[in-house]
Amino acid sequence: MRCVWTDLSLTVNGQTLLLDRSGAAWWEKTRTLIFADLHFEKGSSYARGRQFLPPYDTRATLLRVAEVVSRRAPARIIALGDSFHDPFAAERMGAQERGMLEALAAKAHFLWITGNHDPHPPAWLGGAVRTEWHESGLTFRHEPQADAAPGEIAGHLHPAATVTRFGRGVRRRCFAGDARRLVLPSFGAYTGGLDVGDPAIASLFGARFHAFMLGAERVYAIPRTQVERRKRSEEIQPMITAIATAARP
């Protein structure tokens, strides 16, 4: 099976998904916007342990969600689980953040896939709650499964990748995908990343999958083999000679 992408859309099991630079996936055909690992109220969950992270992560995440929603105007939003950082997260959510979430729910129908952090998303959210969702050859679930049938769209792993050049690494969140499956980057403001080279991610794919890294304005497709590769400046010595010669009169 070949992996096909044009302008960073990826065809997974026959369905074309656009990889949005924000880290969401856009399923144009069904006007569905897909997010993974929103981790609402992760900040305040640390406050329970008396570590006072800035309590603005939910707001920051929701503002970014709202930005993609206004660009894509989805009919449906699928959240791939771990939308809430812990079972009490929704209770701790501020009134303003609730309002923002409700405004989004008024624009698009929510489908909440459950995750390990949120096995029971709160009822007041509205929308549907499922552990998995199958549609047109795609399976939406939180945690990718090793033996999944082609067409799995999942989150959970928070993929990130590093490319290196001139001895400097750039690390970004990324999609990890091939023609059989796609793992979305985590979307929450306080969520970190797991390197795509980690067996937890790499073992899901064959040798040839891509890291689709999130740039400031677009997504960059980097083959897995390239993610660890680096260019070396082995040509330093000739260059020194050239410049030193030019500096003489």
Binding site: V163, T164, R168, V170, Q226, S233
Partner: peptide
């Protein structure tokens, strides 16, 4: 006077938002 500075270019690159994007772009 400029030569020593230029010689360091290939040895050391300085981080800048846009340079980070360059690194991504050039890899591609």
């Amino acid at each position: 006077l400029a030569a020593p500075a230029l010689l360091e270019i290939s040895r050391e690159m300085v981080a800048r938002g846009e340079v980070e994007e360059d690194i991504l772009r050039e890899n591609e």
